[in-house]
């Protein structure tokens, strides 16, 4: 049985018929998606396809006009705070407090989320996220985008949430950092974390995702098993599907 056939109450994430409009523009036109423990799902789509809107609906930052979005059984539109308790999230641009070090930023966000990591635990999480030890104590104002992204990963890892949301996670990362990131996500999935990533990066999709959904016109137009295709075939299929929808 495919994960998409999971009943809503057994899914970590269950989206049914989600519709979201911004004025006259329809961002999502009846999106359906199921995600179970340990699954990695990649939402592929061009800019404006509705990837970030989907993530914002799951986080409760936006509310759907129709349909339901449930995280661990909690309706995100009704109880966004309750739903977010089960979610860890890494935005495309991870912003940190520039006057605090990586360790201090991580401990700050973790403390506000109700955790209390020691300095050593924070350093271990940052190391797990791939941030070099010599950077742990430096002010975040001097960090590159990749380094900030790694602190964001550490913040998300600290929460050990059931659902990890990634919005363009490898955008701006150098190849080595992107590879480290892929490994971190796979490790999280192996621990049972469900992962939903919105991305353009076909190469990393093949590396990380178990399922790929091509998002266009506000709905998933095709679901692909990336392991069955090589990178070139995946790219060709993706472009064909987008062209079909556009025509």
């Amino acid at each position: 049985m495919g994960a998409s056939a999971l009943p809503a109450d057994a899914s970590v994430l269950a989206i049914d018929g989600a519709v979201k409009r911004f004025g006259s523009r329809t961002a999502l036109a009846g999106l359906d998606l199921r995600l179970g423990d340990g699954e990695v799902f990649a939402l592929l789509g061009p800019n404006g396809a509705g990837k970030t809107t989907t993530i914002n609906l799951i986080l409760g930052f936006l509310r759907a006009e129709a349909g339901t979005i449930r995280v661990c059984g909690i309706e995100a539109g009704e109880d966004p705070v309750g739903a977010r308790r089960h979610v860890a999230y890494i935005p495309e641009q991870v912003a940190l407090y520039p006057g605090l070090s990586g360790v201090e930023n991580l401990r700050y966000f973790a403390t506000l989320a109700g955790l209390d990591p020691s300095k050593d635990e924070a350093r271990a999480l940052l190391a797990e996220a791939g941030l070099a030890p010599e950077a742990h104590g430096r002010k975040a104002g001097a960090y590159s985008k990749g380094m900030r992204q790694k602190v964001g990963i550490a913040v998300a890892l600290a929460r050990r949430a059931r659902l990890l949301l990634l919005d363009e996670p490898t955008s701006g990362l150098d190849p080595s950092a992107a590879a480290d990131f892929s490994a971190t996500v796979r490790a999280a999935a192996e621990r049972g974390t469900a992962v939903l990533m919105a991305t353009h990066d076909l190469y990393r999709v093949r590396e990380m995702a178990g399922r790929v959904g091509v998002l266009s016109g506000g709905r998933i137009v095709e679901e692909i098993d990336p392991t069955a295709l090589d990178h070139a075939a995946l790219e060709r299929l993706y472009i064909e599907r987008l062209a079909e929808v556009a025509s």
């Binding site: 935005p91 966000f109 998300a156």
Partner: peptide, 14 residues
Amino acid sequence: RGTLRLALGNGIAP
């Protein structure tokens, strides 16, 4: 700055 997105998205109750 964007830190509110990171905070709220990571389970910090408003």
